[in-house]
Design a binder for these strands. Structure first.
Lengths: 239, 239
DNA sequence: TAGGCATTTTCGTGATCACAATTAGATGCG
DNA sequence: CGCATCTAATTGTGATCACGAAAATGCCTA
């Protein structure tokens, strides 16, 4: 009996499966773990290993890993091993620029559809963010922040950018866990309030500026962390 | 023996599998079929049916369909049936706006990495596009056009937008087949030439304008088709 | 004691099987 | 003759198995 010594992963597997298949439950569990930085980049993820950790058959794991692969959350090395990709400073910068491009566009395209009741819901979601950060729960705060942005963008019923944005979030997720210092939280301007005001005034330009500033603030609060680049793999330039 | 009457699909399954697994071969075959509009939107795709058409076991089909699902190429109706999503005018417009946002950004970020030898390759790819259209091969022309754009964007070694752009292409793919009229080809301005000139001059602004114009030209040539909207499902507004 | 090679283990892939859910066709009632 | 119901075929999901390839382990030699 090979008692796998794999449990380098705690992997709180979300609350039990309500009704959705085992497949989706495994996917969401792994996704959550990725997003909260519970999986070490570079550590090889094996199908059978994860299957044992989550107490399911290898099949749902296989499908979840494939899905996460095509979403960019994990990558396949030389056609075999799968792992969370190493981050580089250049890729980090590209991902954040893409966030700005995509999310300012998504916000502007959602602006005409925003009704007063939606603004109320956004204020509620923004309050949840504050609560999470007051509890020093960085992971939950990050997820709540995504809920705020996602709800805004999805006001546009024809929105097609959200899956792409979520893919970017997923690629950045494993590295935001280092932003545990709430120091910058004290001094930061609440860009969400600015966004809400812009929404109220139906001011597309102000909305874009608020969203961009919000994203740049998050980036700055991460880059301000000393030693953050130690977690980035030096890029092997093969020009 | 249930002789499936499914062959509503011709599905020229690409050239045989060179060395990559059956999995990837199936995926690329389906992707190619999607891109060339060989699969009727709304027609239900079944795992076992496709498995019989491609003469493989259901397993590679299952994985390919899942991957195409998370790329937005196909969608799952009420958690069971999978099919090419119906297009609406609103979604069409959103997808093209997203193309412009993503591709102008990708082009600009690739600009600093463009060397003379890359420009030569781009001219070669542009020539292939002309050849395809001269042969009235719309499908091949569309693929060649994607090769041109992809090669340009990938000059940036830290590019992260290309997978997202390919997802948009994949969602638009099944509907560009209607653009079979080469009438607009005669009068259109060659935006790729403009892009190449901008690249040569390292002019970011001109490059963005060329790429945006190129995309808008393609959109216009499709929308100019009378009756194209007959292929769009009227959107069911549930506000 | 360190390095090269062969054996063994582990892994991903692809195939087949069993089962619940859904759907399409058949049947019976009004 | 039309419609509701029931039955049977079909589908997606999840589990298990077999196989070739890649790694890890151990062994042997210099």
């Amino acid at each position: 009996m090979n008692a796998k010594s794999s449990p380098l992963l705690s992997l709180t597997p979300l609350e039990k499966t309500p009704d959705q298949g085992v497949n989706l439950w495994v996917y969401h569990s792994l996704r959550r773990a990725l997003m909260c930085g519970q999986i070490e980049p570079g550590l090889p993820l094996t199908i059978r290993g994860l299957a044992e950790v989550l107490h399911v058959s290898p099949m749902p794991i296989r499908e979840a890993l494939h899905r996460l692969t095509c979403e960019g959350a994990v990558e396949v090395r030389d056609n075999r091993r799968v792992m969370v990709p190493q981050m580089t400073a250049a890729r980090f910068k590209e991902l954040y620029e893409l966030r700005i491009v995509l999310e300012t566009h998504a916000a502007e395209s959602a602006l005409p559809y925003c009704r007063p009741e939606h603004l109320a819901e956004l204020e509620r979601l923004d309050h949840l963010i504050d609560l999470a950060y007051q509890n020093n729960d960085t992971g939950e705060g990050s997820l709540a922040n995504q809920d705020f942005h996602r709800y805004l963008y999805q006001r546009n019923p024809f929105q097609v950018a959200v899956p792409l944005i979520e893919s970017i979030w997923l690629q950045l997720g494993p590295f935001v866990r280092f932003a545990k210092n709430k120091l910058t939280q004290h001094y930061r301007i609440d860009r969400h309030k600015e966004a809400l005001q812009a929404l109220h005034q139906q001011n597309a330009f102000a909305l874009r500026r608020a969203i961009e500033a919000d994203i740049r603030d998050g980036l700055a609060s991460i880059q301000a962390l000393e030693g953050i680049h130690a977690h980035f793999k030096e890029q092997a330039l093969s020009a």
